[in-house]
């Protein structure tokens, strides 16, 4: 499978944080899914993740996958957004001793990875501390 095609399919979520809300029970999903795991509903309305959340947990990656070795060490976190949605992303622009559970973060648009010297550039969301 081409990475370009997979990357392209995820653009609504990676660029615009598009989420889905089950019209039967109101449960929200990010990324959207076909069937609600709360009530089995198949009807969803489009919503958007808030761009501000709170860090629920984090870790620091020191041994990174091959295409991220130049960024290591870097922080990865799970942040909780409105409606209880939890999202995983890299925490950028942060000193590691600043990291705390509950710290406010906001979403910024960043370059996530690149496919070598000649491949596509992959963009998406990262967390940055609210200062």
């Amino acid at each position: 499978m081409s990475t370009s095609a997979r990357y392209w399919r995820e653009i609504p979520q990676r660029y615009r944080l598009e989420a889905a809300k089950c019209t039967s029970c109101g449960k929200q999903f990010f990324p959207p899914r076909l069937v609600c795991n709360g009530c089995g509903g198949r009807e969803f309305e489009a919503t958007k993740l808030s761009d501000k959340g709170k860090l629920a947990t984090y870790t620091v990656i020191r041994i990174a996958p091959s295409d991220l070795t130049q960024q290591a060490p870097y922080a990865i976190g799970i942040a909780e957004f409105d409606g209880g949605l939890r999202v995983t992303a890299q925490v950028a622009d942060v000193d590691f001793d600043e990291l705390k559970v509950g710290m406010p973060v906001r979403i910024e648009f960043r370059r996530i990875r690149e496919e070598g010297e000649a491949g596509i550039l992959c963009y998406g969301y990262k967390f940055v501390p609210v200062r």
């Binding site: 960024q71 622009d93 370059r111 963009y123």
Partner: peptide, 15 residues
């Protein structure tokens, strides 16, 4: 930073 370029800064300024 290594994850910032003309595109990422354009998006943030436009927001």
């Amino acid at each position: 930073s290594p994850d910032q370029d003309t595109i990422t800064m354009s998006v943030e300024a436009t927001k």
